[in-house]
Design a protein around this nucleic acid. Sequence first.
DNA 1: ATGACTGTTCCGAACAGA
Length: 267
Amino acid sequence: MKIATWNVNSIRARAERVEEWLDRSDVDVLAIQETKAQEKNFPYEIFDFMGYEVAHFGLSQWNGVAIASRVGLEDVERTFAGQPSFAKPGDTPVQEARAIGATCAGVRIWSLYIPNGRGLEDPHMAYKLEWLKELRSNVDSWLSADAQAQFALVGDWNVAPYDHDVWDIDYFREHQMTHVSEPERDAFFAFMNKSGLSDVVRPFTEGEYTYWDYTKLRFPKNEGMRIDFQLYSPALTQRVKSAHIDREERKGKGASDHTPVVVEIAD
DNA sequence: ATGACTGTTCCGAACAGA
């Protein structure tokens, strides 16, 4: 079984590319982030046509996550327990469309779009860190209920865990950029070090990126970042056969700025 | 080429991404 995650940066703008990619990638489950669509605008027909069931969670033109599967799609959950809300001062707090879970062929899949911290001192950074903390508390409760649980947390984590996960760490430090700060990295590594999950893609793809900014010719120069991950529970990690990052999909006109990350597990 | 982006909203400037 193949499980993929892909931040598509608008499902409507990317409809044709998503359909073509599903056709050639032969994945069984695709976790999607940044659909940028409300429910009524989601192009369900693409997935019907390609033989996938799909569950979407979208509240506005921002965020939006989905899971498409051709091996079953059960027990869909929108938001995780205790998922933090965000509100601008004076506005009503809202749980944003950043997490959707479903069980596909016995594997619990979560498609996740971790908040962008925006700036090291920005209120969104505290939101991001709290969001990761609450997510990990769910992981701990799932594993304490069943140490053999098979689940996958996949998506756009908006964290570059190691210095070599960005093209030039000095550039990031000089510009006081997010994604590489110690608190963000601590929050990310806690999923491995404290909760026992595994980044199952890195061993097969070290040195590769998953994202390249549209500006400044970042892709042709291969000035990218590794920020999209698949983190698996211990029992699911045992089933991993291989993984790859589909750099080809970033090429050409009309590509997303992120590219798909694919894992194959034993049936 | 001495700079070079993409998307949504409801028609053009604001916002967001990272």
